Amino acid sequence: MTHELTTRDLTNDTWDDFVSALGSNGGARGCWCMHWRLSIAEWMEGKGEGNKRAMKNLSRRKPAPGVVVYDGATPVAWCSLGPRSAFARLDRSPLLKRVDDEQVCSVACVFVARGYRRTGLLPSILDAVCDYAAAHGYPAVEGYPVDPPDGRRAGSDTAMTGIASAFREAGFTEVARPRKDRPIMRRAVS
């Protein structure tokens, strides 16, 4: 099933929709999508309300820290994205380290709202995110999904980066596989 999804920058105007998509826990364990933006100590210290305030502050800046994805007027997902340099912890990760010097729009988190999970919506969300990245001048989008072995399901803590099969369905190709279950995938958008 194809969905005509739209994206809107996370700003004060879309803040309530962001909160709706992430739920009362702010995604997994009070993250509020700050996992890749902070050191682990900073993230743990801010867990919950501190991380929520930090994201609220980012939502007031340009460029936006990500987009809320809508199906009509309904927020169905959140995607944390931007230049790889916006994600300090991602850039320091030995597992997901930079594979080359290509300027990419990193998709650090794709969080699908509770009522829309396991519906096959993720490839359409990724298409909408790629359209957004192309409109903002990025040559490529890079993702860091999990690829659970033997058809197993990923847990909410690991699925935050997306699922490899959905990335493949959305036209991404693997550019590296630093670990058996963690490909780095890209899609050219310009």
Rank of each mutant, 00 (worst) to 15 (best):
F87K: 00
V76H: 07
R60L: 14
G66A: 05
A77H: 02
R89W: 14
V69E: 06
C79L: 10
G66C: 01
C79G: 14
G66N: 03
P63A: 01
P63T: 01
G82D: 03
R61N: 13
L90C: 09
P75D: 06
G82I: 00
R89P: 12
R89M: 11
W78E: 07
S85P: 05
F87I: 05
N57D: 13
K56L: 13
K62C: 08
A54D: 09
T74S: 03
A54W: 05
D91V: 08
D71P: 08
A73D: 11
R84H: 12
P75H: 06
L58S: 08
L58D: 05
R84P: 09
K62R: 14
S80P: 09
A77T: 06
R60Q: 15
D71Y: 10
A64F: 06
S59I: 00
N57L: 13
T74P: 03
K56P: 08
D71A: 10
P83R: 08
V68Q: 01
A88Q: 14
R61G: 12
K56Y: 15
F87H: 02
P65R: 00
S80E: 13
S59L: 04
K62H: 12
R53Y: 08
A86C: 10
V68N: 02
A86I: 03
S80W: 02
Y70E: 01
R53G: 07
L90G: 06
D71E: 12
R60A: 15
P63Y: 01
G72P: 07
F87Y: 13
W78M: 09
V76K: 02
V68A: 03
G72E: 07
S85C: 10
C79N: 10
L58Q: 11
W78C: 06
F87D: 02
W78Y: 06
P63E: 07
L58T: 00
A77Q: 05
R89Y: 14
P83E: 13
D71H: 13
A77P: 02
A73E: 15
G82R: 00
S85G: 12
R89K: 13
A77F: 04
A73N: 12
Y70D: 00
S85A: 14
R84T: 07
S59V: 08
R89C: 12
C79W: 05
